[in-house]
Design a binder for these strands. Structure first.
Lengths: 149, 149
DNA sequence: CTTAGTGCAAAACCTTTGCAACTCT
DNA sequence: AGAGTTGCAAAGGTTTTGCACTAAG
């Protein structure tokens, strides 16, 4: 995903969407937080801290729009709210999440192996697979250390 | 998972939980619908159809309890409500879900291969993995047929 | 008996929507 | 100018909670 403004502007133009200041601010939040998994409220707070108030409804509408444009990816960690991250399609492979059951930390990992699995499952089930979502739950190194003490 | 009443009764007793009629009815719903993925409202409706009215709050509280006891497994298909299914630990392997993006149908598949993947990821990331959740999104055979017409 | 469980209604939460005012192109 | 966008407040949907009452062990 190329995040220079001109390519984004084009992406919006193609679909007759306007690149408003609100949308730019929200995009900027994700560019500044590539490694985070932000909820609508997170985004709203970050924008407000930067002295640019945007209505929460607009945040929701923008997140939905950016997901539709495949600029963001919606993810769900089961904490009762949707989270979003930049959809870096220029990475060679997807990545997925290890969620620590103690501290809630989320660690990412590449999923080279998932594609083989996807192919096998598609064959066996006669399903045409277009996407997958994988989450592993467990205990991270640090929490296990603390436990041993 | 053994679903004879005596073993369940023991499981409740061990933790000083009471096996009330409401809880038995709700358990029965899942036994009668092993292949389904029921939401709280689904369960509530099924119970009511059988002329046993139970408060919706009780359904929620029971589903949470049964998940904690690992009798049920909570799953999330991203449709805005939690769903539950019997956690059949006596199956040799977990199973996961193929979700059709057209008709919403959910198809299950065994995940023999996930365990290898889990081991590799655990090694690489220094994470102690205890569970995983996998969802594949795509198009089922029937929907693809309809599309071709 | 005693403690946990139930039912109801209200509250909490996240998210969506209607609508008038506004603004990007 | 005109279509899309915003902000606000209200509504929507799911899940949780407080509390008086009830029932299991």
């Amino acid at each position: 995903m190329n995040f220079d403004l001109s390519s984004l502007r084009q992406k919006f133009k193609d679909r007759d969407y306007k690149l408003t200041p609100q949308r730019q601010f929200i995009l900027q939040v994700f560019i500044d937080n590539r490694d985070k998994h932000l909820s609508a409220e997170d985004v709203h707070n970050i924008v407000r801290q930067q002295a640019n108030d945007i209505g929460l409804a607009t945040v929701y509408r923008t997140l939905e729009l950016l997901s539709e444009l495949e600029i963001l990816q919606k993810i769900d960690f089961g904490d009762g709210r949707s989270r979003y991250e930049i959809n870096e399609t220029n990475r060679p492979h997807h990545h997925h999440h290890l969620i620590c059951l103690t501290c809630g930390r989320v660690i990412e990992f590449a999923d080279d192996l998932m594609e083989d699995l996807e192919n096998i499952i598609a064959q066996n089930s006669n399903f045409s697979i277009v996407d997958h979502q994988v989450k592993f739950y467990g205990y991270c190194q640090e929490c296990r250390k603390k436990c041993d003490d």
